[in-house]
Design a protein around this nucleic acid. Structure first.
Lengths: 225, 225
DNA sequence: CCACTTCTTTAAGGTTTAGTTAAGAGGTAT
DNA sequence: ATACCTCTTAACTAAACCTTAAAGAAGTGG
């Protein structure tokens, strides 16, 4: 894996240097900023893999910065860890609510810092790579959630319908005969009458509308391109 | 990451040396002891990252050693893998009940040993490092204290229920099937019927209300987003 | 345009899956 | 030892889902 970049935002220069030193030793690239505004600007320019953000800073404090980042399309997916001097729960909770992914209380133990960073990155990676989402036409088929989104509305299809739709959509444009669909969606050695596919197609159409799955008479079905 | 230390406790010296050789080759530090008592003493002194413990030993056998370790404040967090000659289920189950994290049946395949060790360490690290407080909807799940807060009220869930809730909540939105839940919450090679998950879900719902965990029929469960 | 085939649609029955309750095995604390 | 907890399993109930059949609609080829 390529080196990951971490942006550290803190107004205490000594601490900044200390963190930088430790992160570099662990094989991260490090970017530094000394207040919220600068941090945001730098984040926009370099798209770091994670932002370490002090709460107490001049210009724009950490909590404000979190808010700004979470509302910015480019930045909202970047994980954030807050650094807080106060071990006061209210702040922590507020930070988590605003959208940070973790918080660490000062004074910072280096090992803890590193391990938290790695934990957040790992979790984030898992999320990214496991993602199983298909966007076609005006619908989104999310296989992690088993939900189909259309015009902001959620559709919860039963499993077979969902998987049939997902399979067709993942091969959009291609005509698939009933036997293939049965093998791929139902499983290889499962015996069901192929008319069953029709019924499921009907139910999908009933819920999402007729214009996604096309019938190719004598052959099978196709997800419209 | 710094080298991790593994304490191997077994009365067969040849096996001890063989395991030591293989673990060192994998980059672990290795400590050796030849019976339960010695093992405990050494664990106290060096705080290893994991203990590999033979069941059949003079002085103090493996199962007793597990018990002792699990009751000792310093030692109880250290993961344990049992080595057993008998492939007899009763012993395995007893070991897991007493608090070991995995067991391996002799004769030992080196690759298997290594991969089990790494699996246990990984699982353990994840637990240690991950964020311990989750804020979702109107509840706070605090894993440091094993308490769920809802509207200022405290709920003390039993361990499995808590871990299950925490795991689901930490991946909110994503549908997790029962097997995944069992692997992640119960452990990789612990065999319980998957209906057990349902009962735990029921208990969580009973305590916190129905609207956090959703059922996706035919697939699994999902923490509502 | 008729006959034939293939799809659509409905509804019913059967199957699968989850919910729920209860009970027993172990463990833990008093 | 007793009483309480927790976890797991089992068994029953309830509900959702899948499959089938069958009748009618829509295409297709002669």
């Amino acid at each position: 894996m390529a080196k990951q970049t971490i942006l550290v935002v803190d107004d205490e220069k000594d601490l900044l240097d200390l963190i930088e030193y430790n992160l570099r030793k662990e094989g991260f690239n490090v970017l530094k900023a000394e207040n919220g505004e600068e941090g945001i600007a730098m984040a926009k320019e370099h798209s770091p893999d994670l932002v370490l953000l002090d709460i107490m800073m001049p210009k724009m404090d950490g909590l404000q910065a979190v808010e700004v980042m979470r509302k910015d399309a480019e930045l909202k997916r970047i994980p954030i860890i807050l650094l807080t001097a106060r071990s006061d729960e209210k702040t922590e909770v507020e930070g988590l609510n605003k959208g940070s992914d973790d918080y660490i209380t000062k004074p910072i133990s280096t090992t803890k810092l590193i391990s938290r960073i790695k934990a957040v990155l790992r979790r984030f990676d898992e999320k990214e790579e496991a993602t199983n989402i298909l966007e076609v036409h005006n619908i989104t088929i999310d296989r992690d959630r088993y939900i189909v989104y259309k015009d902001g509305e959620e559709f919860h299809l039963p499993r077979k319908e969902f998987e049939l739709l997902f399979f067709l959509a993942s091969r959009k444009g291609k005509v698939l005969d009933r036997q293939t669909l049965l093998n791929k969606v139902w499983g290889d050695n499962i015996y069901v009458v192929d008319r069953t596919v029709d019924v499921h197609v009907r139910k999908i159409r009933e819920k999402l509308g007729d214009h996604y799955i096309e019938t190719v008479k004598g052959v099978g079905y196709r997800f419209k391109e």
